[in-house]
Design a protein around this nucleic acid. Structure first.
Lengths: 210, 210, 210, 210
DNA sequence: GATGAATGAGTATTCATTCAT
DNA sequence: TATGAATGAATACTCATTCAT
């Protein structure tokens, strides 16, 4: 291993160290209440060091999304590669995959919506922004493919697959956001997973041709 | 009308004046970028005056939710009162009602989720918090009733109606949030309404007994 | 005195309070080492208050120039109004006036050169900038008039009066800056005034027709 | 050449390399906006290395002055050595020499005045400070000699030659600073050189005995 | 000597909130 | 009640300087 490569690896380790700390702090305080100072001390680094690895607070936050989106896409493509499965089973795998991603990093949903602020977008480097756009597009595209396949096989109704993918994603994130918020407002028990399952059961039935 | 009552009425008028201004400002700038100064000048009042009517910025923001939730509940109860309608038609009315509420104040979705921040909740007075909880519960309950009725009439599958109401709300807010965010990230055309219609068409099909 | 007028007067009093404090702090520490905190505590106000009266640090600094330039122009115009004086005597008055201005506020020279930074100019409000430009132009113009008059009366050599005014100002500020800097580097005694007198004696002789 | 001497030479080469880079960076950004990082990368060295050759940023900046003062003194002494020239011609050479120095490094004027800040002086090593003082004194002394000579030859008025040298220097730097600053404030054309010539023409006439 | 990653003190500016009038 | 001037805590970001390698 060359010295160059070792340095690069060390640098990546530091980035991850910061990302992990940032994830913890942003999760517990939200974007606005979390300070760079908080994150630095969580990462056991000085504030200045954060800026050696991330241009600014927005970009650090967006980097969390990038990481989880990469993981999401891998999972989705893995599902899509199962060519022999029936559409219904594929859908089940799809839902499982997404739930795993959510469990791996529950911030994903909120992150995705934080990106919508145009103020945020202005502060991101074009490179990072395009990476995120690209991953989003690919993920949605992969989901769309599954619905398309189901329609081709005559199992699902024929509707614009991209729209179906949007709705799929919207239902998923809607349930998660809503259950998270209800947890606090109504002090209900956490029945997120059952609700998700029910939601997608209904969605699947609704998609079936007859 | 006693002098006491007149004063009370005057006080309520002022509150509404502030709420209207706050809605405009929060809509255009979002919670964090909007300043109390902005709101005060929009309301043609001084900053100090806002604090005579609202404990703090968080509570002013939460009051917007209260107002729109009241309107939502009125619309939902109105739908529910139509006892003679078939479940499918009632569902259509339901969706229309919710879309009207959304159009009346598009902030509603974001407001509802802003409340989830525990940091926010800490700053709310218990009274306001319980009012919001109460309205949320009632609104969801009204929606649940519609699904319950549909099941009783043998049209809809029998599932926990509260869960169905949650999913209904989650799908609605999920689609709105997702389409809003996509608008910026992908520069897609605004097909929010069609997507909502498709989403609820699928949802309705999925609910049907077979 | 109306309430409006009293408020305006109060506001002006505060501005002056801040300007006086700023002058003291900038004089002793220079622009970069002086902090807004320093100035605020010198003025016995809070940092936030400074920003109610001045847009930013640069503009506060530039306001010092404005004030002294106004005084300079008044003095110069007063000299110029003495129509009956011989050019030589007018020149003497001119030098005295400028020396008085310098004694009134020794920062004037350094201020004038601080303004040259294009970074500084970017942060000034166009209004303040144009006021400063205007006063500078008028002051130089007034000086030029004196040389023009001297040439018309056949006492001084005929040269472009604006250039002469520039040189006059350059000599004045050059001597002041240089003597100030020498004071520190060589620990010489302060012979600024004599040097100024000698400088302008030579300058006057050099201007004389023969 | 001993190994010691070779090392010393190498060390001097590095110092010059840094000084050249620093000059470029300070010239384009000014003292405060220029960072040690900027200078290091201009010199193709690491920031840490700069501190092996210069105690701190102030001292690096002051070293630029030292270098140009050395060059100035050489030029001035060269002029002074021309024993056979008439005082007027010597003066012309003097002005030319100074203008050359200015063209060689236009920062010279600003550098000289940056040194005046007592905050700056505190950070300089006594050794460097005394070198600078010494060169300043010698340069001024050389100029003074020229005026003294002119007086002895009966061409110039008899005035304290040191004061004349100060005025000479003040006029030179005053014109340069003033014209530089005017360039930005008034958007005038650059007539620095003509103004300098006119200034020294007047100065020379003013010095002549009658 | 040379490096350059890490440091952490330093600071302009903002804005929710208060309180004397 | 209403005001709005004053407050001052809070914070992202910079950069001269250090020091382990």
């Amino acid at each position: 291993m060359g010295i160059q490569e070792r340095k690069e690896r060390e640098r990546e380790r530091r980035r991850q160290q910061i990302i992990v700390a940032a994830k913890r702090v942003f999760s517990s305080k939200g974007f606005n209440k979390a300070t760079m100072e908080d994150i630095a001390s969580e990462a056991e680094l000085s504030p200045g060091t954060l800026y050696l690895y991330f241009k600014n607070k927005e970009e650090l936050y967006a980097s969390l999304s990038l990481r989880i989106l990469q993981y999401l896409l891998i999972r989705l493509e893995h599902v899509n590669r199962e060519k022999d499965l029936k559409p219904e089973d594929k859908m089940k795998l799809l839902i499982e995959a997404m739930y795993d991603v959510y469990e791996f990093d529950p911030l994903i949903i909120i992150n995705m919506f934080h990106l919508q602020s145009s103020e945020t977008l202005k502060n991101l480097s074009p490179q990072l922004l395009s990476q995120i756009k690209d991953l989003s597009r690919k993920s949605l595209g992969t989901i769309a493919t599954i619905f398309e396949e189901g329609a081709e096989k005559g199992v699902y109704i024929k509707k614009h697959p991209v729209a179906l993918a949007d709705i799929f994603w919207a239902l998923f994130s809607g349930v998660i956001l809503w259950e998270s918020s209800k947890k606090i407002i109504n002090d209900d028990k956490d029945y997120l997973k059952q609700t998700l399952e029910l939601a997608f059961e209904i969605f699947s039935r609704g998609l079936r041709k007859d």
